[in-house]
Design a protein around this nucleic acid. Structure first.
Length: 402
DNA sequence: TCTGGGGTCCTAGGACCC
DNA sequence: TCTGGGGTCCTAGGACCC
């Protein structure tokens, strides 16, 4: 807990309306020309806005807002789909560029990157402001993406500072000024304080950080539990000991789909489930992983979300076994509450890499084994065919039986 | 107004083991 | 008859982030 040595120099690089920028680069004649641009939506009409251009935001449009509502606020706005592949590709480009500019880079999301540039002041003989601005200009030139940078002695400070930098700017909180910086903010501004906690704080008359600073830690712990209370107490004061850590093993892989119309038949649901299982399976194998836990999730028409998970002794990787387990879980969910389904999802967790040592030989020639070497080899062969000839070359379906 | 899709982390209870 | 305690794994749900 005790801070040691020199204060750290942390930067957060945050892309300005990332999805909007990528959509414009992808389609300069269309999206590129529309001042009022909403990225997101969906042909089914059930979509939400993922990102809106700054001009559209001036009308009150926010991300996660239903597209229909956004269009009422901002009539005439152009709506385009999220260019997912292009976004992932551009994100990688930006990360590679940042890795040339900073010793420690951590991708926090598709459009946010933490840098720890502690020590570079001696190397470059420049202030943190100047470092941040140099990085901003270099990234723009190399990737065509405009970013903003927040900086300070801690991750949370850098993150909050970046809000003051947008768009296309830099904002640094000097060492020692963290508490003053926090004091001007609302509790809702603290990353990790969401709608539920805000409501609960509001019920106790607390909205501004400045007002909440007088509350004893003991009370916060009594209200929100020891862990969360202590966490909030520190965060309000700008204290945050988390490091910028470039190692980030993936912990879950999932795919889900909201249907244009709620699905009601087992046949249609299982067809969709097969697609989802195949999709997460390919991602899993591409990452060189196997998974032990499979989760199936449904959202009912009343928005109630239910899930069912199963952990198998053997770690799995083939589409066939993933689908077989997922189908059992879906049938259990349907049995509990047989209602039409708005959303269906498949998730994988509990990863092992390659061969699990403790299971070596355990399932060879074993009736218990869900997956065989033959099946795994086949699954990978299918992957490489798809890689070479496209997704349509192999149609799943006939290879899966009861 | 009518609510996406990809994630991470936390909690609470039960099973099971020593 | 009155029933420990701690650790780990698993499941289900929920808060939160971009």
């Amino acid at each position: 807990m005790v801070e040691q040595g020199h204060p750290r120099r942390i930067l957060l690089v945050d892309c300005d309306a990332f999805f909007v920028q990528v959509a414009r680069l992808e389609d300069p004649e269309g999206a590129g020309q529309a001042k009022l641009l909403l990225v997101g939506g969906s042909p089914s009409g059930r979509g939400v806005v993922t990102s809106a251009s700054y001009a559209a935001r001036a009308f009150g449009v926010r991300s996660a807002m239903p597209t229909a509502q956004a269009l009422r606020l901002c009539p005439g706005a152009r709506v385009v789909r999220v260019p997912r592949k292009a976004c992932a590709h551009k994100s990688r480009e930006i990360r590679l560029e940042l890795q040339r500019l900073s010793p420690v880079v951590q991708a926090a999301s598709i459009d946010e990157f933490y840098l720890d540039v502690t020590g570079t002041e001696r190397l470059f003989r420049e202030s943190l402001e100047d470092t941040a601005d140099r990085i901003r200009r270099t990234v723009l030139e190399a990737t065509e993406i405009s970013v903003s940078l927040g900086g300070g002695t801690r991750r949370m400070i850098a993150k909050l500072a970046s809000d003051f930098a947008k768009p296309a700017g830099v904002h640094i909180v000097p060492p020692g000024k963290e508490a003053d910086f926090m004091k001007q903010l609302d509790l809702a501004d603290i990353p990790g304080v969401g709608p539920a906690l805000v409501r609960s704080l509001q019920d106790r008359g607390l909205v501004r950080i400045e007002d909440a600073l007088g509350v004893d830690q003991e009370w916060l712990e009594r209200w929100f539990g020891a862990h969360r209370g202590a966490w909030l107490y520190r965060r309000m004061r700008g204290l945050d000991s988390s490091r910028v850590d470039p190692r980030e093993p993936r912990k879950s892989i999932s795919s889900e789909r909201t249907f244009a119309q709620d699905l009601d038949t087992d046949e249609a649901l299982e067809r969709s489930l097969l697609q989802l299982s195949t999709s997460v399976g390919r991602t899993l194998r591409k990452a060189g992983l196997r998974a032990r836990t499979i989760t199936v999730k449904v959202k009912d028409p009343d928005f109630k979300t239910r899930s069912r998970a199963r952990t198998t002794p053997q770690s799995l990787e083939t589409d066939g076994t993933l689908f077989t387990v997922a189908r059992e879980l879906l049938r259990e969910l349907r049995a509990v509450r047989p209602t039409p389904v708005r959303l269906l999802g498949v998730g994988l967790t509990n990863f092992t890499t390659g061969i699990d040592p403790e299971q070596l030989g355990m399932f060879d020639d074993d009736d218990e084994a869900l997956e065989t070497e033959r099946g795994r080899t086949l699954s990978k062969a299918v992957d490489s065919l798809r890689e070479r000839f496209g997704d349509r070359s192999i149609v799943p379906g006939p290879m899966i039986r009861d």
